[in-house]
Amino acid sequence: MRNLSASTALGLGCIAFALILAFIWIPLDVETWLVERKRGRYIVGDSLAPTLAAAFILLAGVMLWFERRSRDPRPTRQNLTFIGAISFFGLVGILLMRWSGPVVTSVFGAEEYRLLRDTAPWKYIGFVLGGSTMVFCIVSFVEQRVSWRAFWVALAAVVGIIALYDLPFDDVLLPPNGDV
């Protein structure tokens, strides 16, 4: 297994995923089969198109075994560290964006957040906190240091986006105010 190339491993993963898709996920999670008989006529069922997708992935997996290649690119440990950190900052930022407005409103607001979602300053809480946290954390991580400059850039970015979308358009709602 030590000599297994990234493309071969990817090919194996594709074959396994395609088989699970075709023989477990599609049969259990789609109502109709590949072809159905309805009122005496044969029609295409909802399973056919996803099965075609599975066939593409399966064929790709098989071809990855046979394809000649000059290089064997794969994600390194450094790549995984980077994307893990970025995913974490994204997760925190989006969660803050979604929940900080309702939480702050429940503590300090007179009404529930849903009724205040188009009223300043409540409507900005989530976007300002979540957005600036996301930008600040990513800038600091990439620079590998925490700086006031990153903080001001993050704040300027959210203020700029609010000025771009919220001030000129009455019918535009910033996240998360459209679907809370």
């Binding site: 789609v30 909802d46 198109a49 997708a53 066939a55 071809m63």
Partner: peptide, 28 residues
């Protein structure tokens, strides 16, 4: 790589078929 292009294409097809279709139950 054709194999990787095909994989990319297959994943795109799979993604678009999630939650669509003609049945009452949204597939996948």
């Amino acid at each position: 790589s054709a194999a990787k292009g095909l994989l990319s294409c297959g994943l795109g097809l799979l993604a678009v078929y999630i939650g669509t279709g003609e049945d009452f139950y949204p597939r996948l």
